Simulated assay, not measured.
Amino acid sequence: MLLLSSVQVSGCVTYGVECTRGLPGWLFGWSVGLGALAFVVALAAPVRRVRQAALGGQLLAECTALLVILSYYP
């Protein structure tokens, strides 16, 4: 919802105009991968402290991915 409020992104999604060349793949890929790994650890870890740390890492990775997207599409 946050992304579609941008004129450039909504125009790109709806009409295919003003589309940019793409996201910086390495940062987005690392943050998505780290978020997925932290998600699995948060679900599978038997120790509560490990689950809490994994959840914090997942939230950080998801916020990083969101900020990469938001900063790339003004």
Rank of each mutant, 00 (worst) to 15 (best):
residue 51 R to T: 03
residue 2 L to M: 12
residue 8 Q to G: 05
residue 10 S to I: 01
residue 26 W to G: 06
residue 36 A to L: 13
residue 24 P to L: 00
residue 68 V to N: 02
residue 52 Q to G: 01
residue 34 L to M: 11
residue 63 C to W: 05
residue 51 R to D: 02
residue 43 L to F: 10
residue 31 S to T: 11
residue 19 C to D: 07
residue 67 L to P: 05
residue 14 T to S: 15
residue 7 V to Y: 00
residue 66 L to I: 12
residue 21 R to W: 05
residue 73 Y to K: 10
residue 39 F to R: 15
residue 41 V to D: 07
residue 56 G to R: 15
residue 25 G to A: 12
residue 34 L to S: 15
residue 42 A to T: 09
residue 21 R to N: 14
residue 41 V to S: 03
residue 28 F to D: 14
residue 7 V to L: 07
residue 23 L to D: 02
residue 30 W to D: 13
residue 7 V to M: 06
residue 39 F to Y: 12
residue 36 A to N: 13
residue 55 L to N: 03
residue 43 L to E: 13
residue 29 G to W: 00
residue 4 L to V: 11
residue 11 G to H: 05
residue 36 A to S: 11
residue 61 A to V: 01
residue 38 A to P: 03
residue 63 C to R: 10
residue 39 F to D: 14
residue 1 M to V: 11
residue 19 C to L: 06
residue 58 Q to G: 11
residue 22 G to L: 03
residue 54 A to W: 06
residue 66 L to G: 13
residue 56 G to K: 06
residue 9 V to Y: 09
residue 18 E to Y: 04
residue 1 M to N: 13
residue 29 G to I: 00
residue 7 V to W: 03
residue 16 G to A: 10
residue 28 F to E: 12
residue 13 V to E: 09
residue 32 V to M: 15
residue 13 V to G: 11
residue 10 S to K: 03
residue 69 I to T: 05
residue 64 T to L: 13
residue 33 G to S: 02
residue 34 L to F: 06
residue 48 R to A: 09
residue 44 A to W: 04
residue 1 M to F: 07
residue 42 A to H: 11
residue 19 C to Q: 08
residue 31 S to D: 07
residue 20 T to L: 08
residue 36 A to D: 02
residue 73 Y to G: 00
